[in-house]
Write a protein that binds this DNA or RNA. Structure first.
Lengths: 134, 134
DNA sequence: ATCATAATTTATAATGATTCTAATATAGTG
DNA sequence: CACTATATTAGAATCATTATAAATTATGAT
């Protein structure tokens, strides 16, 4: 069971043609229990089928625009993406250079007391940098 | 008054030789009232003296290691630095692509309820994305 | 001040991620 | 099937950043 028809429908209903490359990427990303943090090169590496780099970029960006992926900011040369698009935060393990989810309900309420005229808050993201405890 | 001798001393006391390039960069960064958010190319642009790009990179990284600058993470292709090294957070204006300081005391206390074995928290950073309110 | 040495600067090349381009292939529609 | 819009592709282009190796400069000792 690889959910091919489900992905096909999902793609179609978002106005994206269900090509074999997109379905393959869907399988890699969404046929897993846990949320997946990855960079483009990670994705390239785990893919057995040959999909061009440009297609991987295009697809991941399309999925991000559709809200199926979330882009994550850390100071690193690579951009990371997350299959968990819910409101949540991250630990960044500086030793392992790995992201770990931090659920919104594992963080106390955040109050932003400063406001800026003519601006509205789009999102509030927390990054907790962690290191080995020694 | 350009604080040249103060910068010279500061550099020397951190084990960095006070070269004319480093002193020029000190002036650009620290002779200002407000904190300064910049990218390497911003710095290159405001410098009237010709300093090679490699030296700008080297110097900014040296200053960051010494704690005179702080590196900031946002999802963008450039790395930003901040002359305000105190514990604080940022707004990122998605329309203007500009960073704005958000003081720690303008944010309610943040409680991280999840712990990870063998790890300690190094820092907690908040990024508040804002857009035009319309 | 001069010398020797280690640190620094520099121009340039190399790298790596990402985007662009233009040709080819494919999906959806009639 | 045929047409057209959309996708995929390989490869080139771009941009930020890092590495290299030679020339320059700061510093401490003489």
């Amino acid at each position: 069971m690889d959910n091919k028809h489900i992905f096909t429908e999902k793609l179609r209903s978002s106005g994206l043609r269900p090509t074999k490359q997109r379905i393959e990427i869907c399988k890699l990303l969404f046929n897993r229990k846990d949320t997946f943090h990855f960079s483009i090169s990670d994705l390239k590496n785990i893919s057995t089928k040959k999909i061009s780099l440009a297609t991987i970029y295009n697809t991941i960006h399309a999925f991000t625009r559709k809200g199926y992926l979330k882009e994550i900011s850390i100071n690193s040369d690579k951009t990371y993406f997350d299959t968990n698009t819910s409101d949540h935060h991250h630990f960044f393990d500086e030793n392992k250079k790995k992201l770990i989810d931090l659920d919104d309900n594992n963080v106390g309420k955040i109050k932003i007391k400063k406001t800026l005229p003519g601006k509205k808050i789009k999102s509030v993201e927390i990054l907790v940098r962690i290191t080995n405890d020694n």
